[in-house]
């Protein structure tokens, strides 16, 4: 019962919220939380099936940089740039995942291979200084007048809020669809026993590639959107190991097996980072990573289902939640 009604209530509240209260800073935080929630949900689309990727920082970075570079160098609207970025991320995902699957690189080893991917994207963005501005970061050119539909640039936070809200909702819907399709059975089976899954008729490599491609495409979309909203990207804020770890951490803290888990994870991690920044200023730079690391270990040991997952199990006593 609550299961049916709750999403609609939450949706209605989120749509009504800016009409009641729309101070710029909280609005900004909401947009950032929604974009990252979408990214973390994208990660969990595959992460929940034991396909732990530390390469998503790479996909996010490809999304952000390709969108900005295509706009600045070729004046290609992000409406075309983001899809191209998604195709690039999917290509990258396939190049990495296909050999992993064929050579049975799974679990920790898969995480390590993908870790290299996010490091490589960061290195390339940092090293190609003449093109990307290197570690100083990169800014998409402003459209004339500050905001423009084709440039996918908007000056007011309200527009961004509704865009981010819509994208986030679509992200949740995509994951819900995946969780309730036959591919979810196949991926659960693959996670447990690849040979037995094969004997049940599952083409292990193709199913893994499908879910990885979907997850990478969504993450690249998030990267492109982040770039358009922030109008500034730098190698270490949109790519690299930090971004990847942050995704894993947020998703695990919120709970990877439950739909709202990654979103709750995003709220917690972003408020934590903002809180540390406000209370300690630049003196606490990087502290959030220390706190993340400690909490991640504690969560994996004591609360592997994450906050939402554990609460859900407590409330319903459900065998499995999806």
């Amino acid at each position: 019962m609550t299961n049916r009604v709750l999403p609609w209530i939450v949706g209605a509240v989120l749509i009504a919220l800016p009409f009641v209260y729309s101070a710029p800073y909280p609005m900004h935080l909401m947009v950032v939380v929604l974009i990252w929630s979408f990214a973390y949900t994208s990660w969990s689309v595959m992460g929940r099936f034991g396909l732990v990727s530390l390469g998503h920082g790479g996909f996010f970075g490809v999304g952000a940089y390709s969108t900005a570079l295509l706009w600045n160098y070729y004046h290609l609207s992000p409406f075309l740039g983001i899809p191209i970025a998604m195709v690039l991320a999917v290509t990258l995902a396939i190049v990495v995942t296909y050999p992993c699957s064929r050579f049975r690189i799974t679990g920790h080893y898969f995480a390590l291979v993908t870790l290299a991917l996010s490091a490589i994207v960061q290195q390339v963005a940092t090293a190609s200084r003449n093109i990307t501005g290197g570690s100083l970061g990169y800014t998409p050119e402003r459209a004339q007048g500050g905001g423009h539909i084709l440039a996918f640039q908007f000056t007011d936070k309200l527009t961004w809020y509704f865009i981010a809200l819509g994208v986030w909702a679509v992200g949740l819907f995509v994951r819900w669809r995946v969780d309730h399709s036959m591919i979810a059975y196949a991926l659960e089976a693959i996670a447990e026993d690849e040979d037995a899954a094969g004997a049940a008729g599952v083409n292990v490599t193709s199913e893994k590639l499908k879910i990885t491609a979907l997850s990478a495409a969504m993450t690249a979309f998030a990267g492109g959107m982040y770039c358009q909203y922030q109008m500034f990207i730098s190698p270490d804020t949109v790519s690299g190991i930090n971004v990847s770890l942050q995704m894993v951490f947020a998703a695990v803290v919120g709970g990877i097996y439950v739909l709202p888990g990654p979103t709750v994870g995003a709220i917690i991690t972003i408020l934590l980072a903002e809180g540390l920044r406000i209370f300690f200023g630049t003196g606490a730079l990087g502290w959030d990573n220390l706190v993340y690391g400690t909490l991640l270990v504690l969560f994996i040991i004591f609360l592997p289902q994450g906050l939402v997952g554990a609460a859900w199990t407590r409330l319903t006593g459900a065998r499995r939640t999806a």
Binding site: A186, E192, N203, R320
Partner: peptide
């Protein structure tokens, strides 16, 4: 597949097989 129910175990084979 321990993470799937009895029915899901067999339905998986029915679908992909």
């Amino acid at each position: 597949f321990k993470r799937l129910s009895l029915f899901e175990n067999v339905a998986l084979a029915g679908y992909y097989g």
